[in-house]
Design a protein around this nucleic acid. Structure first.
Lengths: 218, 218
DNA sequence: GGCTGTGAAAAAGTTCACAGCT
DNA sequence: AGCTGTGAACTTTTTCACAGCC
């Protein structure tokens, strides 16, 4: 039980959590692995295996109690508290992120918006005012254990990244299409639209190349 | 050689491609797996294994010819032609995507912007005018083998998705934080900010829980 | 000597098959 | 009977170790 939860499982738990909250909002009290799996595009056996790493929270012959399972997943994921989020780079994407519902999800709170452009500093976005990037270290100091979201221009990215890390941040969500160097103890996740498109292009091309055999695994 | 390339490899090839193009732009002609690996945050042995699935394009004792390797990876990924991209949902995120450099990357061409809001229809974003969503089937018909990028509100997502699929699209990049049901032959990739944040929260929490042992694998 | 290419070993992740509760 | 929990089998991915070529 105190054995580490596989990273693949960790990546799927938020998916289950969302589906469970939807069920809970609809007043559903109990769910089977089969039904939950169907709403998360995962096989029921994989779902059960995943949940088994957290403990034995289901009831055989019955299913899982929705609210209890929500609580357990949230606890394991560290979502029983709110995490401060600092958004760096308020360009097109940064502005969209600042207003994006994803951050409003239970568990996260945007604490600061930072940009280097004097024209943007002072602008109000949502309930936050854009601050100058020279406030970076101060803001990070005021928000221990914050998650930094990087949406700055490519050429500034490594410099800003180094400053974030020096200031003590150990979790970064990187939207910059560059591989940024960080020490091992820093967890960095990368979102790269261009890469996702390229992966889709590969599969699209493959479909065109072999138009007949749709499901060969050879 | 005509054996399938592992999906894990496919997901990394675009990363190598970007690094290689940077080298090429700087006039570098030759690169070793060690150096290329360093700029992509991948181990050199993994990089070589990945490249070996494409064929033997390196020279022992020397390294890989940058431009030749670019060509080979682009060919395998299907990036020697331009893929049409259709962007559906021009909210905050959609607007950011429309202007985002990622789409301008060699290999993709935004062919249409669609939204249901009459206020947005007719607006100019970049070199494209926003069209009404009722043009969806027509636009898809005019752009065979296009990639659809979905950034519509959650409640409209499944309906729009069904229409896209009926119209013949088989590659979708989904920014909507919902699991959308699609037939098996449709390739769907999902980008979900909230899930990425939750994964970071897990690791951040774990660091707080065990502050001393930074690298235990137990 | 230096660097690629690749079988073989190890690790991680998924699926199967069924035991175990209710 | 119904549905969870899980060892075991299988598949995929990563890493290792070193042969092969320049």
């Amino acid at each position: 039980m105190p054995k580490g939860i596989p990273v693949a499982t960790i990546a799927r738990l938020p998916l289950y959590l969302r589906a469970l909250r939807l069920l809970s909002d609809r007043g559903v009290k109990l769910v089977s692995s089969e039904d939950l799996a169907n709403s998360t595009a995962v096989r029921s056996t994989k779902l059960r295996k995943d949940l088994s790493y957290l403990g034995s929270y289901g009831v055989r012959g019955v299913g899982y109690e929705v609210d209890y399972l929500i609580h357990q997943i949230a606890r394991v994921m560290g979502l029983t508290q709110d995490w401060p989020v600092i958004l760096i780079g308020i360009g097109n994407l940064g502005q969209a992120l600042a207003g994006y519902g994803g951050f409003a999800t239970r568990g996260f709170k945007v604490r600061a918006l930072l940009d280097s452009d004097p024209m943007k500093v002072g602008t109000q976005i949502g309930d936050q005012e854009v601050q100058h990037i020279n406030q970076l270290e101060k803001v990070i100091g005021e928000n221990p254990n914050c998650i930094a979201v990087l949406a700055v221009p490519e050429n500034a990215a490594q410099t800003i990244c180094d400053r974030i890390v020096s200031a003590g941040v150990t979790s970064i969500l990187n939207f910059v299409p560059t591989v940024l160097q960080v020490p091992d103890e820093v967890e960095m996740r990368k979102v790269d639209l261009s890469i996702e498109l390229q992966i889709l292009a590969f599969y699209e091309q493959r479909k065109l190349a072999q138009p007949t055999e749709l499901e060969n695994r050879a």
